[in-house]
Every structure is written in C-alpha cells, then in structure tokens.
C-alpha cells in the first residue's frame, strides 16, 4: 500500500513536471525575443535525462512531453514525440559507444549530437508524415540557409542549458561520476 501511494505521488509529480516544462517551452520561452526564443528546453532535458538517468527512464518522459508539445506546435501530432524518442536513443547509443568519457565536455558533445539528431529527425519525420498525408506542413517555403542558421542557434542554446544544468547539479563532481545513467540500470 505504501509502495502504491509512493508510486502514485511519484506519477503525479512526474506528470506535473512534464506539463510544467511544456508550458514553459510553449508559453514562456516562445514569448521571449530572438534569439532567446530559440532555446529548446525539451531537447536539452531529453539529452540530460538520457545521460544522467538512462534511456529507459527517459523514453516515457520524452514521448509524453513530445505529445503534449505537439498539441501546441505547428507541425503534425507526434512529430516532436518521434524526434525526442530518436534523440534519446541516439544519445544513449553514442554515450555507450562513442562519447564514453563521463565528463562535462562529453555531456556538451552529446548535446550537440542530440540537437543534430533532432534537426535530422524533424526533417525525416515530417517527410514521412507528408508521404502518408498526416500533416499539411511543408518545408517548401523554408529557406535552407535560414533553417541551418536556426540550427546553429539551437545548438548553442542547448549546449548552454546543459552546461547550466551540469553546474547546477554536478558542480562538485567535475569528473562526472554521477553521469552514469547510460552505464546500465
């Protein structure tokens, strides 16, 4: 009974956290002037959670946040959820096989990888959505140069956020021994 209550309370705060972060993204951050409105808090947190908590715990969170975000986003339902899912999987895989050093800079590198994956995934998923006529969204009038410039801003913002998260939660452990979520259970 005690376990059930604890799990229920945990689920409540988990849901509250997802809603709160999505509200901050679509309400607060989007209302800030450029370039502050380029900050993608959700991508940064997907990367951070994947590295610190592991892909298992991040996937449900990432997809839930993505689906709620998609209710407010311009492109079709599920696009952000797919993108966050792919970002979590790729970041986890890279953290296991490529950027295996659990350091501050490996976290930042994974942030860059996560951003690039998010950009690639958004193009791929929207392309697939268009093939299956799930969305009316089109990249046709989006300038490739403007889009790439936007990605650079996004990467910078995500890396900055990850640095702040690291300093906020792990500043006393510079060698990042706590960043072990990807090592196993």
């Amino acid at each position: 009974m005690d376990t059930l209550l604890r799990k229920s309370v945990g689920l409540f705060f988990w849901t509250l956290g997802v809603i709160g972060l999505v509200v901050i993204q679509v309400g607060f951050i989007s209302s800030l002037p450029f370039p502050l409105n380029s900050i993608n808090l959700l991508v940064a947190l997907v990367v951070y959670r994947t590295v610190t908590r592991g892909v298992q715990k991040t996937l449900p969170w990432a997809v839930a946040a993505g689906l709620l975000y998609d209710l407010y986003a311009a492109w079709g339902f599920g696009v952000s959820a797919w993108c966050f899912l792919l970002v979590a999987i790729l970041v986890s895989t890279c953290a296991r096989h490529i950027v295996t050093n659990r350091s501050f800079f490996s976290l930042l590198a994974l942030g860059v990888i996560g951003c690039l994956m998010y950009a690639a995934a958004s193009v791929l998923v929207i392309w697939l959505y268009q093939i299956f006529s799930i969305t009316v969204w089109s990249w046709s009038r989006v300038s490739a140069w403007e889009w790439m410039a936007g990605q650079v801003t996004d990467i910078f913002a995500v890396v900055l956020l990850l640095a702040l998260l690291y300093i906020g939660f792990h500043r006393t452990v510079w060698d990042a021994t706590t960043l072990d979520g990807v090592k196993g259970r």
Binding site: I19, V22, V23, G27, F28, S31, P33
Partner: peptide
C-alpha cells in the same frame, strides 16, 4: 484546457520579460 491557464500566464510573463 488543463494547461491553457498556466500557458496563458507563461505567455504574459515571457512577453513582459522580453
């Protein structure tokens, strides 16, 4: 409906700070 009131406050806060 559940998120709109909070999002509305967040929009006003973001606009004010921006």
């Amino acid at each position: 409906r559940a998120t709109q009131p909070f999002a509305s406050v967040a929009v006003r806060a973001g606009s004010f700070i921006g």
